[in-house]
Write a protein that binds this DNA or RNA. Structure first.
Lengths: 240, 240
DNA sequence: TGCTCTATTGTTGTTTACAAACAACAGTTT
DNA sequence: AAACTGTTGTTTGTAAACAACAATAGAGCA
């Protein structure tokens, strides 16, 4: 059984369905499993060396996260994205992040701010070569996750986690396809996010909201161009 | 096996875990299962005449909906509410409904508007006696669900469904405890919601947003008073 | 050739049985 | 009396077998 013996210091004991969920999520985000691909419980169970129980549980969770789509009696497939999805995701993100930064202004502790600063400084320490799409998108989402954590709003955080998975799923892929966007975007990443910390610390709620809105909208603009070119990600019926 | 042979005309075939989920949800919302109550899989399985599989699935879904809380190796209990929860829920609701009505202004079809009007007229046809807290809260949530449907925003709708369950879970209970609030609230319900339909039809986005914001905030004010009196819903360790 | 019906096959839904984790208790030791 | 330790009982996590459903291919017929 493929249990990782000693991973990070985890709060609650890891259980098989957790392992399966995380592995599957990684596989989807890294596009090892292409969008539209069918996932049979039996096949996956055999491949991962566990029974179907934990697999079913993992698939249900990923369905909730929007990374797979389960149809009754028909099974699961990896979710695929079109421009409508992008519009939905980013409009949700705007609404949620505005709420998040509002609550963060009220509730953020100094350790919350410190956590955000550390992510920022981690980014600044990266060399140009280390700033791969994969790594930057990871740090980007980590930063925003820290923002949501600073809001101290349980339901908001859970909702963000769902959205984050979906964003992650197409962000790595999208960015890695576009060299020139990265050229203009990467240098601005640091200063851009430094503003977040500042407005939260000073509790400038209305300015904070504006900052977030602009930020998310620029993010959408970068991503959207990709999904106009690629008209309809035709559902490919993938064979194993 | 306790399958309801012919329920409503359902789109996809109902499966055991669906039945269990719906029954359990109803039981929680109607307070047949009091907040904090322990739910053992075996016990429930025996009681409903199904095996633990569907039960587990149902509990996981209701955990996602926020109606039960699952702790690893410790099982599930019915969620309980305090004033912090109320603040979280209503702040989320504001953000979501503003987004919803914005999208509804852009995307609502005439049949969407008709659906909302019909709920309104159903309400108006109710006699005073029929306007029980249970019935009114059901219609209220149905109306707002119609609003979210009119937005034609899949992810927004799913997020609303989660929130709706939670609201429903304490709304029936809260309202049924307070006679005088209903006296001033019920007569205004109809006109209040009629405005929604009007601003959507005329696509008055900014006015629509204001309308929604005020509406939700008044809702919060009504509910919040209840949770100030009742300081801490002590976790009662309920025996069966 | 084209259609319908049936049988087959592969997949998911459900059940049952077993293993592991946790919680409560009793007995022992200090 | 208090704290530790081993045991027992209850409950969840996992596995494997069985049943039901959906899709498909092929036989039979017009």
């Amino acid at each position: 059984m493929a249990l990782k013996p000693l991973g990070l210091g985890l709060a609650s004991r890891r259980v098989l369905s957790d392992v399966v969920t995380d592995d599957l999520r990684d596989a989807i985000i890294s596009h090892d499993l292409e969008p539209g691909r069918r996932i049979a419980e039996d096949e996956l169970a055999l491949q991962m060396g566990v029974s179907r129980g934990p697999i079913r549980e993992a698939l249900m969770r990923l369905d909730r996260e929007g990374l797979v789509t389960i149809e009754r009696h028909k099974g699961a497939r990896v979710a695929s994205w079109n421009d409508t999805d992008i519009q939905e995701i980013y409009s949700m993100r705007s609404a949620l992040e505005v709420l998040a930064i509002e609550w963060a202004c009220k509730n953020a502790t100094s350790s919350d701010l410190k956590a955000m600063e550390e992510i920022l400084s981690t980014y600044n320490k990266l060399s140009e070569k280390q700033r791969t799409p994969r790594e930057v998108s990871r740090l980007d989402l980590e930063f925003h996750t820290a923002l949501f954590a600073a809001a101290h709003h349980e339901r908001l955080f859970k909702t963000w986690e769902v959205l984050r998975s979906q964003i992650h799923a197409f962000l790595v892929y999208t960015w890695s396809q576009d060299g020139k966007i990265n050229k203009v975007f990467l240098p601005k990443w640091g200063p851009d996010h430094a503003v977040f910390i500042e407005v939260i610390r000073n509790k400038q709620i209305s300015k904070a909201k504006e900052t977030v809105l602009g930020h998310v909208e620029r993010g959408l603009a970068r991503v959207a161009t990709h999904f106009i070119e690629e008209p309809k990600p035709k559902k490919k019926v993938a064979k194993r």
